[in-house]
Simulated scan of single mutants.
Amino acid sequence: MVTAALAIVGTLLGAIVSGRYQERAADRSVRVSHSEVLRRERLEAVTALACAVSDHRRAMWLRGDALLRQAPADRVEALRSESHETRSAVTRPLVALRILIEDHEVRAAADRVVTLTYAIRDAYESADALSEAREAAKDAHDDFVNAAARYLAT
């Protein structure tokens, strides 16, 4: 009788221990999966912002160049419309980045690249000013990508 009771208790304890191991393994798997999904979403936010800012920088430079070259009004208006669309496209990935990434360096670099890209609009007085603004925005873009790469590598 004692032997049977010990066998039953041993079986129950074995089932409990085995269940706990399986539960821990499942929890670990969920944590790893969640971390990987979050990392992918962060990478997507960074990539989308970098692309949107590049598109806007190009649109703003083309618009400024057209103004400086005194392009026809319909061309300038078309470029103005394009720059409005590309500026609007910056908002979504910037918001996603702010929600998904709390790192101060990445956020500061994102703010800087957006600010300097938007500032191209204020450099339409000369070709030199336009080129300088464009180069400053390109450098800020590279700094942003590098800061994000360091953050995502950890």
Rank of each mutant, 00 (worst) to 15 (best):
residue 1 M to K: 08
residue 1 M to R: 07
residue 2 V to R: 14
residue 2 V to D: 13
residue 4 A to T: 14
residue 5 A to K: 12
residue 5 A to V: 15
residue 7 A to I: 06
residue 9 V to G: 07
residue 10 G to K: 04
residue 11 T to N: 09
residue 11 T to P: 02
residue 14 G to Q: 04
residue 14 G to F: 11
residue 16 I to A: 14
residue 18 S to V: 10
residue 19 G to E: 11
residue 20 R to S: 08
residue 20 R to F: 13
residue 21 Y to F: 15
residue 22 Q to W: 12
residue 22 Q to V: 13
residue 23 E to K: 15
residue 23 E to D: 14
residue 26 A to Y: 09
residue 27 D to R: 14
residue 30 V to N: 06
residue 31 R to F: 06
residue 32 V to A: 13
residue 33 S to M: 12
residue 38 L to Y: 00
residue 42 R to V: 00
residue 43 L to S: 04
residue 44 E to T: 11
residue 44 E to C: 03
residue 44 E to K: 09
residue 44 E to Y: 10
residue 45 A to D: 05
residue 46 V to P: 00
residue 50 A to K: 00
residue 51 C to K: 10
residue 53 V to K: 01
residue 55 D to L: 15
residue 57 R to K: 10
residue 58 R to L: 13
residue 58 R to P: 00
residue 60 M to P: 02
residue 60 M to F: 10
residue 61 W to T: 12
residue 62 L to A: 12
residue 64 G to L: 07
residue 64 G to C: 04
residue 64 G to Q: 05
residue 64 G to Y: 07
residue 66 A to V: 11
residue 68 L to W: 07
residue 68 L to Y: 08
residue 68 L to H: 08
residue 70 Q to E: 15
residue 71 A to W: 04
residue 71 A to F: 05
residue 71 A to D: 08
residue 71 A to C: 09
residue 74 D to S: 10
residue 76 V to T: 15
residue 77 E to N: 11
residue 79 L to R: 03
residue 81 S to M: 11
residue 81 S to R: 15
residue 83 S to A: 15
residue 84 H to S: 15
residue 85 E to N: 09
residue 87 R to L: 11
residue 87 R to M: 11
residue 87 R to S: 13
residue 88 S to M: 06
residue 89 A to D: 07
residue 90 V to S: 02
residue 94 L to R: 07
residue 94 L to V: 02
residue 94 L to N: 09
residue 94 L to W: 07
residue 94 L to T: 08
residue 95 V to D: 01
residue 96 A to D: 11
residue 97 L to C: 05
residue 97 L to Y: 00
residue 100 L to H: 04
residue 103 D to C: 05
residue 104 H to T: 14
residue 105 E to G: 05
residue 105 E to M: 08
residue 106 V to Q: 01
residue 106 V to E: 01
residue 106 V to R: 02
residue 107 R to F: 00
residue 108 A to T: 06
residue 108 A to S: 12
residue 108 A to V: 05
residue 109 A to E: 01
residue 109 A to G: 02
residue 110 A to H: 02
residue 112 R to P: 05
residue 112 R to L: 13
residue 112 R to T: 15
residue 112 R to S: 14
residue 114 V to Y: 01
residue 116 L to M: 12
residue 117 T to S: 08
residue 118 Y to N: 10
residue 118 Y to T: 08
residue 120 I to R: 05
residue 122 D to N: 14
residue 124 Y to D: 06
residue 124 Y to N: 05
residue 126 S to K: 04
residue 126 S to N: 07
residue 131 S to G: 10
residue 131 S to A: 15
residue 132 E to G: 06
residue 135 E to R: 09
residue 136 A to Y: 00
residue 139 D to K: 06
residue 139 D to Y: 01
residue 140 A to F: 06
residue 140 A to L: 03
residue 140 A to D: 03
residue 140 A to C: 06
residue 142 D to L: 08
residue 143 D to Q: 09
residue 145 V to F: 01
residue 147 A to F: 01
residue 149 A to C: 02
residue 151 Y to I: 00
residue 153 A to K: 06
residue 154 T to I: 09
